Deep mutational scan, measured.
Amino acid sequence: KKRTSIEVSVKGALESHFLKCPKPSAQEITNLADSLQLEKEVVRVWFCNRRQKEKR
């Protein structure tokens, strides 16, 4: 499966949402994916990866 490159503006939106809520619910992920026009899975994985980055 190909990697999804996320635009800078979208990254900013994801980042600001992450600061408010690092573990969004499935519903929040769906809403966020719809508003940013990304697949739910891409948003879910982004949050997962971002939480791991926070641990490092």
Score class of each variant (00 low, 15 high):
E41Y: 03
N49G: 06
R3T: 10
Q27R: 11
S16P: 04
L36A: 01
N49Y: 04
H17N: 07
V42Q: 12
R50K: 05
S5I: 09
K53W: 08
A13F: 07
Q52F: 07
G12K: 12
T30E: 09
L38T: 07
N31C: 13
T4I: 12
S16R: 12
C48D: 12
Q27A: 11
R51A: 09
E54H: 04
V45Y: 06
K20W: 04
R50D: 02
V42D: 12
W46F: 02
L14M: 04
L14D: 02
E54R: 04
R3M: 14
T30A: 12
K40G: 11
A33V: 00
C21M: 05
S9V: 08
A26Q: 12
R51W: 13
V8M: 15
R51N: 07
N49R: 06
L14A: 02
K11D: 14
K23N: 15
C48Y: 14
R3V: 13
K2E: 11
R50S: 01
T30Y: 05
F18N: 00
G12E: 15
L38Y: 00
E54Q: 06
Q52G: 08
I6P: 13
R44V: 06
K40H: 08
L32G: 01
K53A: 14
K55A: 12
A26E: 13
E7V: 07
E54Y: 03
Q52I: 07
V8I: 15
Q37D: 13
V8E: 15
E54M: 08
K23T: 11
R51K: 03
F47S: 04
E54W: 03
A33M: 02
L19Q: 13
P24R: 01
S5K: 15
N31E: 13
P24D: 02
G12C: 15
T30H: 08
E28N: 04
E54P: 03
K11H: 12
L36F: 07
P22T: 15
I6E: 10
N31R: 13
V43F: 00
V8K: 14
K1N: 10
N31W: 10
V8D: 10
Q52C: 08
K40V: 14
Q52S: 13
E15C: 03
E28T: 06
R51E: 08
G12S: 15
H17L: 07
K53C: 08
I6T: 14
R3H: 06
G12H: 13
S25C: 07
Q27H: 09
K23H: 08
R51I: 07
L14V: 01
Q52K: 09
E54C: 05
E15M: 02
S16H: 05
Q27L: 10
S35E: 12
V10F: 05
K20I: 07
S5V: 15
S35I: 09
V42P: 03
Q37R: 10
F18V: 01
K1Y: 06
I29Q: 02
S16T: 11
G12D: 14
T4P: 06
K23C: 13
R56A: 11
S16A: 12
K2A: 08
V45E: 14
F18H: 00
S35N: 10
S35L: 10
K2D: 09
K11M: 13
Q27M: 07
F18Q: 02
R56H: 06
H17P: 02
S5Q: 15
A26K: 09
E28V: 04
A13R: 13
V43R: 00
K55F: 05
I6H: 09
K20A: 07
K20M: 07
V8C: 07
K1V: 10
Q27F: 06
H17K: 05
Q27E: 12
E39M: 04
E39C: 09
N31K: 13
P22S: 05
H17I: 07
P22K: 04
L38I: 11
V10G: 06
I6W: 09
E41N: 05
S9R: 12
L14S: 01
E54L: 05
C21R: 04
N49F: 05
H17Y: 14
E7A: 09
E39Y: 01
K40S: 13
K2C: 05
V10K: 12
K53H: 07
K53T: 11
L14C: 03
K2N: 09
V45F: 07
A26I: 14
G12T: 14
S5L: 11
A26H: 14
S16N: 11
F18P: 00
L19N: 13
T4D: 06
P24A: 02
V8G: 14
I29M: 12
L36W: 03
A13N: 06
R50I: 02
A33K: 00
K11A: 09
K11L: 14
